[in-house]
Design a protein around this nucleic acid. Structure first.
Lengths: 247, 247
DNA sequence: TTATTTATTGCAAATTTGTGCGGTATTTTT
DNA sequence: AAAAATACCGCACAAATTTGCAATAAATAA
């Protein structure tokens, strides 16, 4: 078996499983581990895999590390800044939860004259800390992982307010399936939030675009603005641009 | 399992829960705590998590801790511990805001089976972190300096609940004038909180006893328990003991 | 073809890395 | 103050890696 064949096989395995072990490959390909290691070194050299002790990982594997930190944090700041341009003096604004929204609350200029509603205690505290505007925290049962209030009380309270703009973060958005989420309770809340606002903006890092989860919040055409970290003219956003204003 | 996989899993957990315990991870990943600690150190080294005693925290989710006043910290811990003895499994408990209450939330044992209501976002978050009980955050306008929810919405919601025990911190308490406060809005809330609970406990550091402020919440005989950092038999508490159970 | 060079592979020794464990120090809780 | 939990250090050991080297195969030149 030629070296190239072997390396092609290795790449195939890596793409399939996101990881390979030198020991496994040695058996599968019936060569010594030394040979496998040499192959992996070459593949790593040319940037095709990420070599680690014991084997190698797919390059896409490294992204969960940086997800929160280096990469996504910057993305979220970008998104926050763009989203803030949607907020005008005098508006009543409803904000969701999540790290992106927290970033937005932290980025918000102090001088704004708005009334903010939110279901996130963290966002509320951050807002109260830096702006002199009214901050209204919508109460309810506190969802453990997401730290936003949920439940019928929240929905009731939402039904009694009417805001100019609602900004929501999401982890999943696609042209076909719209905004989706994995938590039933959260979906109910998001729906209610959309109902009580004039205009809606969805905040999503580009990475999460075109992913789908189990439960649906709304279609893409039900939202007014899509805010991502990419330039609005970016190719991957073209299909969204036809249905929604991309910022 | 490769080291990188393990660390990716850890990052996943951190992003999901905002905190991880070395002990938990050690079990989940079936490696020694030493290994977890080494992983955590590496992740902290590269700035991906914030390592703390017992585990690690997400870097992006650090909410404001405003208990800078070190001086009364010990007193508040004492009070928190005593107050916790009033809380029994199965109770519905209503908690106010303030640093003492925050201390209580942090001190609460994890295994309690209660339903907690609170007007403080910080207390709510703290409770949700450490107990598996229902935590209901009563929503409303966020008061700036105290960080508790206020306003008619809060009063409305309070009027709809009925709890076994209400614990309130106060800055001013005297035998003659009872519980007093300086903020009109806060007084309204406190009154409403007292109305909806079977039993009431007032938490106050001894230093604040016998001080009076402009607005009245209730008389001393309207409360059931007085929790201070002093021993219940202490001389300065004797006049209170005649009207209320001092703990 | 034969000889010579070159690339590839496996092997063994030396080295590095990752992990668990025991003992001790430190921190937190009681 | 005592007890419990957690962290740190050094060591041992196993697994993985590196390195030099020899054997083999393939390519090239005489």
């Amino acid at each position: 078996m030629l070296k190239e064949e072997r390396q092609a096989f290795i790449m195939h395995e890596v793409n399939l499983h996101n990881k390979v072990l030198s020991s496994d490959l040695s058996i599968q390909l019936n060569v010594s581990e030394d040979t496998i290691r040499r192959d992996l070194n070459e593949l790593a050299e040319s940037g095709k895999v990420l070599k680690v002790y014991g084997g190698a990982l797919s390059k896409s594997f490294q992204y969960p590390f940086q997800d929160n930190e280096v990469y996504a944090r910057e993305s979220k700041k970008t998104i926050a800044q763009k989203a803030i341009t949607l907020i005008q003096d005098g508006m009543a604004v409803l904000l969701g939860g999540g790290t992106t929204m927290l970033e937005l609350a932290r980025t918000l200029p102090e001088k704004m004259q708005c009334t903010f509603f939110t279901i996130s205690p963290l966002v509320a505290l951050e807002l109260a800390e830096r702006s002199s505007d009214d901050v209204i925290l919508i109460g309810g049962k506190l969802a453990r992982n997401t730290n936003v209030t949920i439940g019928s009380q929240v929905i009731n309270q939402l039904s009694e307010i009417r805001v100019d703009l609602c900004l929501l973060g999401t982890n999943s958005l696609s042209v076909e399936d719209g905004v989706t989420d994995s938590d039933w309770e959260v979906v109910q809340i998001k729906k209610a939030m959309l109902r009580c606002s004039q205009k809606t903006g969805i905040l999503s890092i580009a990475e999460k675009l075109n992913s789908v989860q189990k439960m649906k919040v709304c279609n893409v055409n039900a939202i007014d603005y899509l805010v991502t970290d990419l330039d609005a003219k970016h190719d991957s956003l073209s299909r969204f641009s036809q249905v929604v204003k991309v910022i």
